[in-house]
């Protein structure tokens, strides 16, 4: 047994003249959720596909539980499971048949594969839909079936590539609960996401990737304190008080106001102390100072820093979509 689930050294993947993954060094500890955060085209999916042995690296090396992803690909394949961005399911077959197919391919005999399929369908709330063709499933059901197919062989490491992209909030929460359950039973999860919120909710460590390179790594707390814990948005009743409000809030929070095109809006970043309650406290105190000064507000919110703000703080450029490369 090893305490490191994944270790990569200078991992490279080139598509034409696009260096999708460009010298990535990652160390993922076992037994927790590790978040990989980055915008579209940052190289998250490419990195995951290399780690799951679906793509051959063009340079560098990667080991999963000590096994090289190229030289010992089969050993890696028996330890990992991948649920990609797009459901890897056979649309024409029923949910149950999909699971039995995977079970048979993993070497289960027919009765064992059926039993395992039924057990998974039950755990993921799909028993009633078991005999329906997957093309009639909703997005959330599809995702759950996809994850349960990946869990068929009880992988030690589960790759979830943007598992909630395109899901409605209820289905997203279900996926989050599933991830928490999976990791609480000792499976390591590597999760890629575009949402800081999601990484923050689930991951105990987060790596931020941009242009195929690691640009920051740490606990969500560390990351947020480097970025700021959040942003206070205030909507004034009287736009004429904007200058006063900006001055007060900046002083109370210790940060300059972010320019905003709306004359009635004031946006100020809350510098982090590594904990969230600190940010909320700071914001509440700042707002009460506004009230004390007689500035009337219609609305306010304390927002999580967005991926853009993380990128601004870490790289001095906003998260940019790569031009049609992927």
């Amino acid at each position: 047994m090893t305490d490191t689930a994944i270790e990569t050294n200078g991992l490279v993947k080139v598509f034409g003249d696009n260096r999708a993954v460009d010298g990535l060094d990652l160390t993922v500890p076992a037994g927790a959720v590790f978040g990989v955060l980055g915008p579209n085209g940052a190289g998250k999916t490419t990195a995951v596909r290399m780690l799951a042995t679906l793509l051959r690296p063009d340079g560098g090396s990667a080991r999963v539980f000590g096994h090289d992803v190229v030289a010992e690909a089969d050993a890696v394949r028996s330890l990992v499971g991948l649920t990609g961005q797009y459901a890897s399911l056979d649309e024409d077959m029923t949910g149950r048949e999909n699971l039995i197919l995977i079970g048979r391919l993993l070497g289960f005999r027919k009765p064992a594969a059926r039993a395992r399929a039924d057990e998974l369908l039950e755990a993921f709330g799909l028993t009633a839909a078991a005999e329906r063709q997957v093309k009639n499933y909703s997005g959330g059901m599809r995702r759950r079936l996809d994850i349960s197919a990946t869990l068929m062989n009880t992988p030690r490491l589960l790759f979830l590539d943007e598992p909630t992209t395109g899901l409605d909030p209820r289905s997203r929460n279900q996926v989050w609960d599933i991830v928490r359950a999976v990791v609480s039973y000792g499976t390591t999860v590597l999760l890629t996401t575009q949402y800081l919120d999601e990484a923050d909710q689930l991951a105990s460590r987060i790596a931020v990737i941009d242009h195929g390179k690691l640009i920051a790594e740490g606990t969500p707390g560390e990351l947020k304190s480097s970025v700021g814990a959040g942003t206070v948005h205030v909507r004034l009743r009287d736009p004429g008080q904007r200058a006063d409000a900006e001055k007060l809030l900046s002083a109370a929070l210790g940060a300059a106001a972010t320019p905003d095109p709306d004359p009635r809006r004031v946006v100020v970043r809350v510098p982090g102390h590594g904990t969230e309650s600190g940010a909320a406290e700071d914001a509440a105190r700042a707002l009460s100072e506004l009230a004390a000064a007689g500035i009337v507000i219609d609305d306010f919110s304390l927002g999580q820093p967005s991926l853009d703000e993380v990128f601004l703080a870490l790289t001095d450029h906003p998260a940019s979509e790569k031009e049609a490369a992927a």
Partner: peptide, 22 residues
């Protein structure tokens, strides 16, 4: 079912129980 499905940690834990791999 779709409306009411709440992932239960225990049932999911049960399917994750390490078992003999075929």
């Amino acid at each position: 079912q779709e409306q009411t499905y709440v992932p239960a940690a225990e049932t999911i834990g049960a399917v994750l129980d390490p078992r003999e791999r075929p």
